[in-house]
Amino acid sequence: MFEGLVALVKGMLTTGREMTSPPVTYQYPEVKKPVPPRFRGRHELKRHENGLEKCIGCSLCAAACPADAIYVVPAANQDNERYSPGERYAATYEINLLRCIFCGFCEEACPTGAIVLEHDYELAYYDRRSAIITKEQLLVAPPKPNMGTPRVMPDPGNLYAAIPPIKGGTEPVNIVEMAKAKQ
């Protein structure tokens, strides 16, 4: 009988301790749980420091995707309508989040670091159609409001390296200037 009492007291102590410790439950959606830095949530399409889109419409992400969730239709940049460095950009870029298995292969395949699986995990939709997210939804905001795309570049006729040089950071490199400088 004595033993039973000890057990009861032990149990109550545990209960008492848990009652006073801070709660583990997050009051989602009011409170959001921070995710680990390498968490793979919804994709984002990144921009260069000067606001040009990093995505060059190469479809390598689509080719790498095991779930065939990515759809890219490329087009050619124009002098007065430039989206990305180089000659090509993604005119249409869609990801079907119902198909995506968040494996991150697209991120790995991307030659420009344009597509990154970020930390948004709130991926519920009222209909299947809206689970297909478009380029506008994926693209991050430009660093400054006047740096959006498409835009007219100051040096028409010049081309930028589609894939920024390894050493040169993330600023698109004007390869024609570069060639001239060398000569």
Partner: peptide, 12 residues
């Protein structure tokens, strides 16, 4: 070679 050290020429 780094991309910078490559020879560049006219495109398009």
């Amino acid at each position: 070679f780094y991309v910078e050290s490559k020879f560049h020429n006219e495109k398009s």
